[in-house]
Write a protein that binds this DNA or RNA. Structure first.
Lengths: 212, 212
DNA sequence: CCCATGATTGACTGACGAGTCAGTCGACGC
DNA sequence: GCGTCGACTGACTCGTCAGTCAATCATGGG
């Protein structure tokens, strides 16, 4: 369970994610976070430098985990390119169903928003894109991905498509409550996005359902 | 050129788009807009109800134009599904090159951001998605688009992919300064995204370069 | 039992910036 | 010339938080 200090910290971050998702970062007051977490106003400043730092921590700590998994997928030698990309899409769709508020905060308050333009967050985002680009570029070398498209652009297309689905879900335009919803969504996303990127060779031997 | 009043209004909106793109909506003060437009602070309030109303006008007026073109594309009886979707992608990529600041503001400050969750903007966005969905659904009826994927989800995938490319450009990760850049980008986007959605039949007779 | 250390509290302050408004200026009709 | 009307000005007001800090409480060690 970690030290009681670490628990308090988590408790505050959890509350912050909730209220950020509900009202947006700018409209939530620090007092809202404190109220939701059941702690005094001032305590927030015992654990965090500023309101911005709270949002930053939400992002940094979760994005690091995401990046780690992303790199594991990239380096999995037993997976083909299509499977790797499908795994990423599935990872994100699962995350969406399990922790929608967190995904919403990351999408709405960080990837988007003026804050975006700020320094180290861009770098963190780019790193994820870079990993996807590397998977795609490797796939091109293996003849599994269309060779004459820019892997950077494809990486953006891939991420963007998945992100849009997340947004659609958050807007309640795309249902994804149940396992079945999620499975169907994964199938549509992987089939549509991947079959546009993979060559015929790249589509062989994929698990049924991934493409086709 | 319109009445001098209308010109003043445009002048303020133009300045607003510029500073919103540079600093983000929340970080720009009304005085920044006034300074950039070369008018007095108070004049902003002669033409607009509030700072929010300025952003709202930026969106409303430009989105209406976009929607109009979108519907024309949908209703063009001389175009096949693939061509229609390609036309939309090309429209957006051109807009990106011609008015990057405007696109940035629409993406960052409206489609994203907490503001999003607010009332009539969602509806406006959904309307665009709906038009794309209608194009796709019609394509499915014609046998030009994969029949067993949800047209809504595909519409989101399509838009999201294009939007991500715009974001990549704004981040300077994807170059799109010259005509050649734009042409290459259009080709990659249409080829990748469309070939994932279209059936073999739907890919026949497309202009070379669109898919393939 | 007492003190020290650090978590915890919440009333308070100070800055910032949206929106107001009393007044100026220039054009135009009479 | 003179008055009116509306564009235009920018100093000021006023609410809203982010962030501070002095005081309190819980603990564990001596």
């Amino acid at each position: 369970m970690g030290s009681p200090e670490a628990e308090r910290r988590k408790q505050i971050l959890k509350a912050a994610v909730e209220v950020f998702a509900e009202r947006g970062f700018h409209r939530t007051r620090v007092s809202d976070i404190a109220k939701r977490a059941g702690v005094a106003y001032g305590l927030i400043y015992h654990y965090f430098e500023s309101k911005d730092a709270v949002l930053s921590s939400v992002f940094d700590e979760n994005w690091a985990v995401f990046l780690k998994v992303l790199k594991e997928i990239r380096d999995a030698s037993d997976k083909r390119t299509g499977e790797k990309l499908a795994a990423i899409a599935e990872l994100l769709i699962d995350a969406l169903r399990v922790t929608p508020a967190l995904i919403q905060v990351i999408i709405q308050e960080i990837s988007r928003s003026d804050r975006f333009i700020e320094a180290p967050k861009i770098e963190a985002f780019q790193e994820a894109f870079r990993v996807v680009k590397e998977i795609i570029a490797e796939g091109q070398r293996q003849g599994e991905v269309e060779a004459d498209s820019d892997p950077w652009v494809m990486a953006y297309l891939f991420f963007g498509a998945v992100e849009a689905v997340c947004t659609g879900f958050l807007l309640e335009a795309i249902p994804c409550r149940t396992e079945e919803d999620a499975a169907r969504l994964k199938r549509t996303v992987t089939r549509t996005v991947l079959s546009g990127m993979l060559t015929a060779a790249g589509q062989e031997k994929l698990k049924p359902g991934h493409v086709g």
